[in-house]
Amino acid sequence: MKRLEQAKHNQLVIDKITRTVGYSYRIPSYRAICRILEHHGILSSVGNKWTERSVYRLLQRNGYSGLWGLHKFMLDK
């Protein structure tokens, strides 16, 4: 996957995680996020299944301090 395709894919994943975190009262666990992504057939940019660590690192690379940071960012909007 080329960088532009990878960036679009990562944004798709972040959008899905944002919708999941935004509509829940409590912040879901990383394991729950992995299950949701797997349920929707979304693989990582290299084609692997999601792990808790890969979700966390994806969020970190995009400027969020994990699920908590994403949730806090959404509340501050």
Rank of each mutant, 00 (worst) to 15 (best):
R53A: 10
Q11I: 01
Y30F: 12
L43H: 08
G69K: 04
I33Q: 05
N10Q: 15
V21L: 08
R61P: 00
H40A: 11
L58E: 04
D76S: 14
V13M: 05
S65C: 05
K72T: 12
W50A: 05
T51Y: 11
H71V: 00
D15Q: 13
Y25D: 09
S54L: 06
Y56N: 13
R61M: 10
K72Y: 06
S29W: 02
I27Y: 02
H71T: 01
L37G: 08
K16F: 03
T51V: 03
N48T: 10
H40R: 06
Y64A: 05
G66Y: 04
K2N: 15
L43T: 13
W50F: 11
G69C: 09
R26I: 05
D15F: 06
G66M: 09
G41E: 10
S29C: 01
L58R: 07
C34P: 03
G41T: 11
I42S: 03
Y30D: 08
W68S: 10
L67Q: 06
L58I: 08
Y64V: 05
K2G: 14
T18P: 01
G63S: 06
N62I: 02
Y64E: 04
I14E: 08
G63T: 07
R31F: 08
V21Q: 04
T18A: 14
V21M: 05
W50H: 07
I42D: 04
D76Y: 02
W50G: 02
F73I: 00
S65D: 14
M74K: 12
Y30L: 15
K49R: 13
G41M: 07
R26Q: 12
R31M: 08
S29V: 02
L59A: 07
C34E: 13
R61T: 06
V21S: 06
V55I: 12
Y23T: 11
W50P: 04
S65I: 01
I17Y: 01
L59D: 08
I27C: 13
P28G: 06
G22R: 10
I36A: 08
Q60E: 14
V46K: 14
I33G: 02
I27S: 02
R19E: 15
P28M: 06
Y64D: 07
S29G: 14
V13A: 02
A32P: 00
R57C: 08
F73N: 12
Y56H: 14
M1C: 09
W68D: 07
G22K: 10
T51S: 15
K8D: 11
K2S: 11
I33Y: 01
V46E: 12
S24A: 10
L43I: 04
L12W: 00
R61Y: 05
Y23L: 07
R31A: 13
Y25F: 09
K72I: 07
R35P: 00
P28E: 04
N48F: 07
D15T: 13
W68A: 10
I17K: 01
K49P: 04
S45E: 15
S29I: 01
I42P: 09
N62S: 10
